[in-house]
Design a protein around this nucleic acid. Sequence first.
DNA 1: TACGATCCACTGCCATACAAGCACTACCAT
DNA 2: ATGGTAGTGCTTGTATGGCAGTGGATCGTA
Lengths: 238, 238
Amino acid sequence: MGRGEPGHRSARVVVYEQLRRRIVSGELPPGAPLSENDLAAELSVSRTPVRESLILLADEDLVQVFPQLGSFVSRVDIRHVADAQFVREAIEIASLRDAADRLDAPALAALRDVLARQRAAGDDVEEFFRLDEEFHQMLLGVGGHAGAWRAVQSAKVHLDRARRLGLRTVSPVAPLVAQHTAVVDALAAGDPEAAETALREHLRAVFDDIERIRERSPELFTSEGTSRPARRNITVWR
Amino acid sequence: MGRGEPGHRSARVVVYEQLRRRIVSGELPPGAPLSENDLAAELSVSRTPVRESLILLADEDLVQVFPQLGSFVSRVDIRHVADAQFVREAIEIASLRDAADRLDAPALAALRDVLARQRAAGDDVEEFFRLDEEFHQMLLGVGGHAGAWRAVQSAKVHLDRARRLGLRTVSPVAPLVAQHTAVVDALAAGDPEAAETALREHLRAVFDDIERIRERSPELFTSEGTSRPARRNITVWR
DNA sequence: TACGATCCACTGCCATACAAGCACTACCAT
DNA sequence: ATGGTAGTGCTTGTATGGCAGTGGATCGTA
């Protein structure tokens, strides 16, 4: 496929999406070194698209770059997560108020379909997060603010990463699906107040989860002493 | 100054900030071509930092890149502006609710100082926008959500650009300062309801301004036919 | 053993060269 | 006059080379 084809994805986009996915999933944990050379060799591209991807990831605070030192997966800054929580809540709640008036039968059916699939997903974490994205994006669309999804996503990515880092040891996903259901039920019942309360509780529950994770695994979060990582184990063992 | 010094600003950051300023100010109008080679020559750097800056600007929808065709200052998409308006309003209003409880004497004095400087600025557009940024950022800080400023800014930049494109021909800034003052007065009076109403009216007034600008200068906004610009006048006349 | 000067592998930043593709011009055949 | 087509100069995308800077490893000295 030629470069001009609509389906063409440049090497930069491919690299960016893969790195982002691996960082958010926890496969590349906070503090992991991201050498331009190593990544280029691993992904069979040159340093250029790798570097451009790292710049974009640094712009959304998923990566920290120290010139002449190295690039690293950023540690989770709890203040940054709190800010993301606030932004996300503000946008989603504001949209929900509009959604109460605009909900129609097809949209309601689509929402319920996502909920059913979430219940069916069980403990498949990957699937749950895919459907979680779909649910919240759909909810924004019902409010007539699908265009605000990018802003939500740029905040949500930090919440998702923090959750996934400790998801195995902490809460199951079933209550979250129940909270989603409560929001939709309140909307369907024409009770925007209850919907707002339910959504706010849901988002707060997510944040509380993260704070529990922080207590269990403080090494994943920033602390004043570790802000500037150093290289480790450069020479090969022999 | 060495590259490692704290005050060092890489060529990429310098180029990025200059291009961003020139785009938002209208010096580089919507549709203007941004050739990587030309910009590199003009700014006395190589293509690399220019290109990396364009990627960042494209990520925030200030620039559109068409592979093998060219990069252009993006036209103003009214839907995009409406989304930005919604996001900004949601965040600032949510923060204002917290600000009502947290306002103390020093913060109030700082806010009033900015208002006084805005009144003194008169018709200096550059100064007005600087102080407008300062005011809204300060208001977020009072609410305890200074970290949300980046999210607001990434939305606000599109509103600012749209306003500046037609500011000369449309409304004066004095009413905007009066609206700012109304917000602070309501906060100081301990009336969060009135403050919210005043802020919402202020933000809506800004958006109405943009719609008036659109009626006067539709060529600055997207229309279906002009989404993909073409090159013109490649060969030199002789 | 403890400590300091030096070395050097490795880093990201920038400049440059090459590759692939599109738009327009100019020309040629019909 | 008109339609088709090769040529040309620009575009962005990718690869690579060179540079300044960093800090762990290493060796010399007390």
